[in-house]
Design a protein around this nucleic acid. Structure first.
Length: 912
RNA sequence: GGGCCCGUGGUCCAGUGGUUAAGACAUCACCCUCACAAGGUGUCUGGGACCGGUGGUUACCGGGGUUCGAAUCCCCGCGGGCCCA
């Protein structure tokens, strides 16, 4: 058999990716009505053109679940879409062609966006395939395609009819750079340096002044009231009186409000419409008038009087200058302030009042919270983040945007009475600029003239109906709704998870997902958030370039527990590769023994030795644990357990312990081969969701011929065979490992070759049971460690032995004796260890302490002994648990026998 | 200002009331070479690895409390992060 000497993931991975595509194993079978379905709703990424490590982490989780569920016999839907209408595309197009929105006719601009999006998608799709994600590409959707946005519009129309979408005038977050309203979720807060100006307001009708502090003097023309904290002694007497606001001198009242910060500035705040979100609350609470001071571009409006037309910055300087000249500027000081900015272009956000479309999410708050409570969250505590978010909402969701590249709002306006006319369902999809409204005359004023809605929908309106769309909505396939799994990162709980919940609750009346799986954020190797500006950015192409995607996927899995943030770490990638190489080499060794003949052996007729039953028992426990952890989405635990099993139990111990049987013509060699075959095949299967290509390579190289499935990913997930879980064999196996390990250490410490023969080893134990088990594995120990003569004896060697101490077994005594444990500890410490040991030898230990009597069994305590060597020729090794004594006769230096090279080569021949 | 998360060896991370705190990376020492060096052929060679094995090293942020017993639960503080206002 031609087997490559080293595992080369860079060559192997693309080969299997191609083969899997040919086999079509990722496809959801729509015709199949027998298998249970498992639906994963994947968040459609922005087609930015780059595949971020965080996305790779995210998709690795989906892929593990998808592959696992397929092996469990589910008909898995693993769809993939693209959230095309994101702001990033618009920004990229503007940057690439050096234009701004409005420089081109909308259709032309849209074309450029589509072209760029398609290019980006192509690249990202290739990258996703290279990362080995088992996506069903036949489901691919793009939110910019008519078939998709038809449904987005349909949901708009339906929610409008139910009164859950309305048009209203409301303050919105506005980005003057992008010239659009943006949602709360798109506002990013960052600390910036600001100047706090102390300004004198003349008290109306008096010659006294009141000093206020503000960071935004340009808003003075829009000041409608000034406020202090209720009961503030400094201003108590002036509450209710009037002041004159410079520079125009409008007269406003001094009021009280509990939201005023006593310690900030002078304790007096001016309320302007609208300087920030607090102003919006104050306007609402105190029913204040609204002044439209800023226009859409961030310039001063007519309301700014002589400052009209200036930018915010220019206006600020001009007003401060004028105040200084008028002697009204008391002082200025620097401070850092948290300022909301557009998440994409970082321009500070203004608050404007504009007619907008809203979705009535505040009315759905209780339902959303109820929904969040019913859904399973992994990890649990992430649920609270969504609930906190839902509870903190104080505005309805602004769903209209002033952009070009987005889903058009299916509406028109009557030119005479401004009545909005929303499209009929049968018309969809519509582009209001091109299509006609569904009515000939305005139902309100009978006018025949209409104009199209220019605004478009927030991109979250597109992407928050994906689950319904996967299920075929409006013809809903109940097998596909709700989705079983909703996986995404911690950063989009308040957007993705929230909007999905609120939209589907509004549209279909039920929560769209059963389980939410949250992954953490990926940090750079330096522990800071991964970003290009910090210079710690690694892209996935680079990360998988070294050892392939399976090594990278192991980093994603093992790097942190589910939901925790995870730093990218090359060492974990390296380890991932080393693990595969270890397994690969073990398979190369085992290869010659893994064939159809071995697979078909009847286990009932084989002479298994305890060591074989040990590994089979451990394997079956591993199957159970791995399955449980996968069901709980604890991927790191599952992968860790498999790695430890393969590396340490299988390679370090089992393989070494059966070599002597495989090389020789031992009667039990077939049993070892059989065990090896099943352990390796099962381990490859358990690894399949994690390292799909590596598992496939192992499967195809060593096992394919013996199995009906053309791919390991089409095989079935291993089942626990309870009959093979054998505690007695596990004890025997662990005893063998303990002795082998001890002898390895013994040789290692004495700088002996592992293959050097130890002429004689005698193991003493006080337990007949242990002696029996040791005898069962004696040949394996002797064969593995080259022991000439191995004897097991019950009893103790004639050695000088001294009891050093008798210590309490807290885990036993604590729960039983509670507070009295302290007395026992004291009594054991004070008594003579020898006396205690003598008593124990008789079966029980009686103690008096604190006026009470206690009776302890041998298992309640530990006896710490020191053993002195009796003879010169024998070396003594004591093992504490279980208590064993090894007497080892070392080879005499002149008469060292080694396995000759000829026998070694003979073995090599027999193995190949 | 509010909410949430986190603090365990040099680094990362597991452990969430009960023996000696798991593992990976790192580092050091030693050993082996028979799946996990190289050459080669006749009953091997010289050689000793950036593979593998064995072992060593090093840890519960500080303070208080609850408890027979705390890394684990509670409180305070310090430090870091995230989200929101």
């Amino acid at each position: 058999m031609e087997v490559s000497k080293d595992y080369d993931p860079i060559k192997v991975e693309p080969r299997w990716q191609k083969r899997w595509e040919e086999l079509g194993i990722y496809g959801f079978d729509r015709e199949d009505k027998t298998k249970p379905t498992y639906v994963i709703d994947t968040p459609p990424p922005y087609p930015s053109g780059e595949f971020h490590m965080g996305t790779a982490l995210n998709w690795t989780y989906f892929d593990i679940v998808a592959r696992y569920k397929r092996m469990r016999g589910f008909n898995v839907l693993f769809p993939q879409g693209w959230d095309c209408h994101g702001l990033p595309t618009k920004v990229q197009v503007e940057k690439r062609y050096g234009i701004r929105k409005g420089d081109l006719p909308p259709e032309k601009f849209r074309e450029l966006c589509i072209k760029l999006t398609e290019k980006n998608i192509t690249h990202m799709r290739e990258e996703m395939n290279s990362l080995g994600f088992s996506i069903d590409w036949s489901t691919e959707y793009r939110t910019m395609d008519p078939d998709y946005y038809r449904r987005t519009q349909l949901s708009f129309v339906q929610l409008y009819k139910r009164g859950l979408i309305y048009r209203g005038e409301h303050p919105v977050n506005w980005c003057p750079r992008c010239e659009t309203a943006i949602a709360d979720a798109e506002v990013e807060y960052a600390d910036r340096e600001a100047t706090l100006s102390h300004i004198k307001f003349k008290r109306h009708g008096e010659d006294e002044y009141l000093t206020i502090a503000t960071t935004r003097p340009e808003y003075l023309p829009a000041c409608v009231v000034v406020a202090v904290y209720p009961g503030d002694e400094r201003y108590e007497k002036q509450v209710g009186k009037k002041v004159e606001v410079p520079p125009f001198g409008q007269v406003v009242e001094l009021i009280e409000d509990h939201e005023v910060d006593l310690e900030f500035g002078t304790g007096v705040v001016m309320v302007c419409t609208f300087g920030d979100k607090t102003d919006v609350r104050w306007v609402k609470r105190h029913k204040l008038p609204v002044v439209k001071l800023i226009d859409e571009k961030g310039n001063m409006s007519e309301a700014a009087g002589k400052y009209a037309g200036l930018t915010l910055e220019e206006c600020k300087r001009a007003i401060v200058d004028d105040l200084r000249k008028a002697g009204l500027l008391v002082k200025q000081e620097k401070l850092t302030q948290s300022v909301g900015a557009c998440w994409r272009c970082k321009t500070p956000v203004e608050i404007l009042t504009k007619p907008q479309w809203f979705m009535r999410v505040l009315d759905l708050k209780d339902k959303v919270i109820e929904g969040a409570k019913q859904v399973r969250w992994v990890p649990e505590h992430m649920r609270q983040r969504l609930i906190d978010w839902a509870e903190s909402m104080d505005w309805d969701w602004v769903i209209s945007r002033q952009r070009i590249f987005a889903t058009p709002i299916p509406a028109w306006y009557c030119t005479s009475c401004r009545e909005p006319i929303v499209a009929e369902e049968r018309q969809l999809p519509v582009t209001p600029a091109k299509d006609k409204p569904p009515v000939e005359r305005c139902p309100k004023c009978n006018s025949e003239s209409f104009e199209p809605e220019q605004d478009v929908l927030d991109t979250w309106m597109d992407s928050s109906i994906t689950i319904a769309v996967h299920a075929g909505w409006p013809e809903l396939d109940r097998r596909l709704f709700p989705a079983d799994l909703q996986p995404n990162g911690t950063d989009i709980i308040r957007t993705w998870d929230y909007y999905l919940l609120v939209r589907h609750l509004a549209l279909l009346g039920e929560a769209p997902y059963r389980t939410v799986l949250i992954n953490g954020m990926v940090f750079g190797e330096d522990g800071r958030k991964m970003s290009k500006s910090l210079g710690n950015y690694v892209d996935t192409t680079m990360a998988r370039g070294k050892y392939g995607t399976d090594a990278l996927r192991q980093w994603a899995v093992i790097g942190a527990s589910t939901g925790s943030d995870i730093p990218f770490n090359w060492k974990d990638v390296d380890f991932g590769y080393r693990f595969m190489r270890k397994f690969w080499n073990a398979a190369r060794f085992a290869g010659p023994h893994l064939n159809a003949k071995i697979a078909k052996l009847d286990p009932k007729k084989l002479k298994f030795r305890p060591i074989d039953r040990w590994i089979l028992s451990r394997l079956n426990r591993l199957i159970g644990q791995t399955t449980g952890w996968l069901e709980d989405f604890q991927f790191n635990h599952a992968m860790g357990a498999i790695q430890t099993f393969v590396w340490h139990e299988l390679c370090d111990m089992y393989i070494e312990e059966v070599k002597h049987r495989l090389y020789g013509d031992d009667l039990t060699a077939d049993a070892a081969r059989y065990a090896l075959y099943h352990v390796m095949l099962t381990a490859a299967k358990l690894l399949a969701p994690f390292t799909p290509h590596f598992s496939e390579e192992i499967y195809q190289t060593y096992f394919d011929k013996d199995h009906p499935y053309p791919s390991v990913h089409m095989s079935s997930w291993p089942e626990v065979n309870k009959k093979l879980i054998d505690e007695s064999a596990e004890r025997a196996g662990e005893l063998a490992n303990l002795i082998v390990g001890t002898l390895r250490q013994f040789k290692s410490e004495r700088k002996m070759a592992l293959s050097r023969e130890l002429p004689s080893v005698v193991i003493y134990t006080s337990s007949r049971e242990t002696a029996k088990q040791l005898k069962e594995v004696g040949d394996d120990i002797a064969g593995t460690m080259c022991v000439g003569k191995l004897n097991i004896k019950v009893g103790k060697p004639k050695l000088a032995e001294r009891v050093l101490a008798v210590e309490p077994e807290m885990a036993k005594l604590g729960p039983r004796l509670r507070a009295d444990v302290r007395l026992i500890v004291q009594a054991l410490r004070e008594a003579k260890p020898e006396d205690l040991a003598k008593q124990l030898a008789k079966g029980k230990l009686k103690l008096r302490a604190g006026g009470k009597r206690f009776e302890l069994a041998p298992e309640d305590v530990r006896v710490i002994k020191e053993t002195a060597s009796a003879g010169r020729k024998v070396e003594v090794i004591d093992i504490q648990k279980p208590a064993l004594t090894l007497l080892i006769t070392s080879p005499r230096s002149g008469l060292v026998r080694r396995r000759t090279r000829s026998t070694r080569r003979a073995r090599r021949r027999s193995a190949s």
